[in-house]
Write a protein that binds this DNA or RNA. Structure first.
Lengths: 203, 203
DNA sequence: TTTAAAAATGAACCCGGTTCGTTTTATGCT
DNA sequence: AGCATAAAACGAACCGGGTTCATTTTTAAA
């Protein structure tokens, strides 16, 4: 990676960090993008060159591209299998390399701003829609099934994520919560795959 | 009612009608509030004097004030009973006095604009929150119950409304759909009141 | 070192929304 | 009818988020 791209990543990170700090201190609506740009030592147009909208300064990375995972799965792998593998890997690897403090700040900022809550909801809806489109290609001609699968999958993933954040916010250590996360992922996908009937039930 | 207030209502209605027509023709985002104001023969500031935001031109009246109904119920009436009575009356009376065409246009415009969908979702969330607050005063000290009741009630009401709109959009006559609406309201509140167990079940 | 591409910039602009001081318009009173 | 008063409409200037564009700076490559 050349010097150029390193500087870009650095600038991007600096902008996001400054924004998150200001939002956390004074509230999302009370902070202007001009302030953020100035505090980050960059022009407003440059900020918008990195982040397409104000809310993206906070919601960056919230949206997983489930549709791409489904579309890019190896031959012979089911959509659900590919998604399970993705989140399994994420849970196993993720614990080491995330900044708990900034993650908590993001959760704080988002959950205390109706505008950001709305943005997150919108992202989930569009993610669900795109996933449904990708699933339609896997099972053509069965639109309602695709939509129902997309709705269930995004609901399950969202629930697992929220449970993880709640554990972190409740003071659980990252290792603990990460361990449970792996189990939660398996449970969620087991339920998706085999249905809500408990194991002892007859079909 | 004096001439003054009559003209006000007339102006308000004209603005909303013009806006709805333009949105329906060209899409919500492609129509500017300046255009609407000009087409309605009014200044922009006057438009915002009638409607506090662009989306309110369409979402006006979407939000029921459930909290007020609960707070203003007669002595001896349960919150749920008051709500049931409200929607029962609405279903019985409502059929006669609404404009189907404009109602359909509103549904079209809203459901084809992510911004408006988000606005509606936000309204539902705040309505639910306010209802939960009102319920807390009815059953003090039981916050989670209040929140769960509010969530269930708003979900049920929303579902009944959406089913009604779908019937209308599917071509059912207003009288037909209105008749079913009355039944749906009773069903929804029966389920809320007595739970999801079917009538033959033992407790 | 020169050159070409990438990135940063300032300035002007658009749109939704607000503020404020002024003008119009309806109303109540005489 | 005439007048005072309050409500409503107005224009214009302003703000913040977001875009466009032409220009300058920076970096990579030859």
């Amino acid at each position: 990676m050349g010097l150029r791209e390193r500087k870009k990543e650095q600038t991007r990170r600096r902008i996001a960090e400054v924004a998150l700090r200001l939002f956390d201190e004074r509230g999302y609506d009370a902070v202007t993008v001009n302030e953020i740009a100035e505090a980050a030592g960059v022009a407003k147009v440059t900020l918008f060159n990195y982040f397409p909208a104000k809310d993206c300064l906070v919601t960056e990375g919230v949206k997983d591209d489930l549709a791409a995972i489904v579309a890019g799965r190896l031959e012979g792998v089911s959509p659900l299998g590919a998604l399970r593998e993705h989140y399994r890997a994420l849970a196993a690897q993720g614990a080491g390399e995330m900044d708990v403090e900034s993650l908590l700040a993001r959760v704080r900022v988002i959950s205390s701003s109706p505008a950001l809550m709305g943005a997150v909801h919108g992202m989930r809806m569009s993610e669900r829609y795109e996933l449904a489109q990708a699933l339609k290609e896997a099972h053509p001609g069965d639109d309602l099934t695709a939509q129902l699968m997309a709705a269930q999958i995004t609901a399950a993933v969202t629930t697992v994520q929220e449970a993880f954040f709640q554990r972190i916010a409740a003071g659980e250590s990252l290792d603990e919560a990460g361990g449970r996360l792996a189990g939660d992922v398996e449970l969620a996908f087991d339920l998706l795959e085999h249905g809500l009937t408990s194991k002892g039930d007859k079909s």
